[in-house]
């Protein structure tokens, strides 16, 4: 398994075509951009012209949302081939997918759906990640999901499940801190306790995004909407993770109600400030020692 150059340990942003002309106007103070793989699985045209420009000037993360790694049935070989082709074409610095399923019985649901955490699903997920890494001939990153329900049959805590997947397959972790916060609130657990159980030393990328606040009649219900600024408690968790694990490439995801480019950039720079602050603190303590 090869290890191509990694993403820089800086802040990045999810690339949106409506921002392209502003992004292309001048160098942006960001370490990388991320795209959803499926949006670039057409043959040619504007999407590839823009992605080529992005790839020429920045590090690139390709984030798959459609492979359905968590489903019990075999991976879609056509889709796997498309992903391989995309990776060969752009040689990204990171390739990631989700701990979730999105296809069943030939239907694609276009959502990241949850799975129970059991010995059985551990075997399924690990085999699918092995297959993906073998086909792509590289290490991939797996992202923890935001969930609204749990399964009675789940026997393994999520962080442990992912820790075991990472151990068995040698894949890395894409730590979505908003997802951890959303899931923790939805399931009545403590986000900080949960997050510290994840294999943070294997995190090669962090996702930060906004969520929506709702209520299910009994308790608060957070929705992973990617449609708002990163919430304060999520930024606080992020600071704690960076303190714990050191600087990690950090992406701001904003996929719905997408703001103008300067606003998205500002959000990414807020993450960059936390990374910079950590570096300064380390430098100060090194000098003091």
């Amino acid at each position: 398994m090869s290890h191509p150059p990694l993403l820089p340990r800086r802040a990045g942003a999810g690339f949106k075509p409506q921002h392209f002309s502003l992004i292309a106007q001048e160098p942006q103070p960001l370490g990388f951009f991320e795209i959803h793989a499926e949006n670039y699985m057409g043959t040619g045209g504007q999407p590839h012209a823009e992605l080529q420009h992005i790839r020429t000037h920045y590090a690139l993360s390709i984030h798959g949302v459609g492979l359905s790694i968590g489903a019990p049935h075999p991976l879609d070989q056509d889709h796997l081939a498309r992903l391989k082709h995309l990776c060969q074409r752009y040689e990204p610095h990171a390739v990631s997918e989700h701990l979730a399923w999105s296809s069943h019985g030939g239907v694609f649901f276009n959502d990241l759906l949850p799975l129970p955490y059991t010995e059985e699903t551990l075997g399924i997920v690990a085999a699918h990640i092995d297959e993906l890494q073998t086909v792509l001939r590289r290490q991939i990153l797996i992202e923890n999901p935001a969930t609204y329900i749990r399964f009675a049959q789940s026997a393994i805590p999520e962080a442990e499940f992912i820790g075991e997947v990472v151990q068995r397959t040698g894949c890395a972790l894409l730590l979505d801190i908003n997802n951890i916060h959303v899931s923790a609130i939805n399931h009545g657990t403590d986000p900080l306790t949960d997050i510290l159980r994840f294999p943070l030393d294997r995190a090669q990328e962090i996702h930060l995004a906004g969520h929506a606040e709702s209520h299910d009649g009994t308790s608060p219900l957070l929705i992973d909407s990617h449609g708002a600024a990163v919430a304060d408690p999520v930024f606080a968790l992020y600071e704690r993770v960076i303190e714990e694990a050191g600087p990690i490439p950090t992406l701001i995801e904003w996929d719905n109600d997408v703001p103008e480019w300067p606003r998205l950039l500002e959000e990414a720079l807020a993450a960059q400030a936390i990374l910079d602050n950590h570096q300064e603190q380390c430098a100060i303590s090194a000098t003091a020692a």
Binding site: N110, D111, Y148, I149, R150, Q153, D216
Partner: peptide, 26 residues
């Protein structure tokens, strides 16, 4: 069956989030 929310009576509303996500995205 097998689907739980942190309060039993909320499972329907929680599952509705997935139903809504799927239909809205399509």
């Amino acid at each position: 069956e097998d689907i739980l929310a942190c309060h039993a009576e909320a499972a329907g509303k929680r599952f509705a989030v997935y139903r809504n996500n799927v239909i809205v995205s399509l």
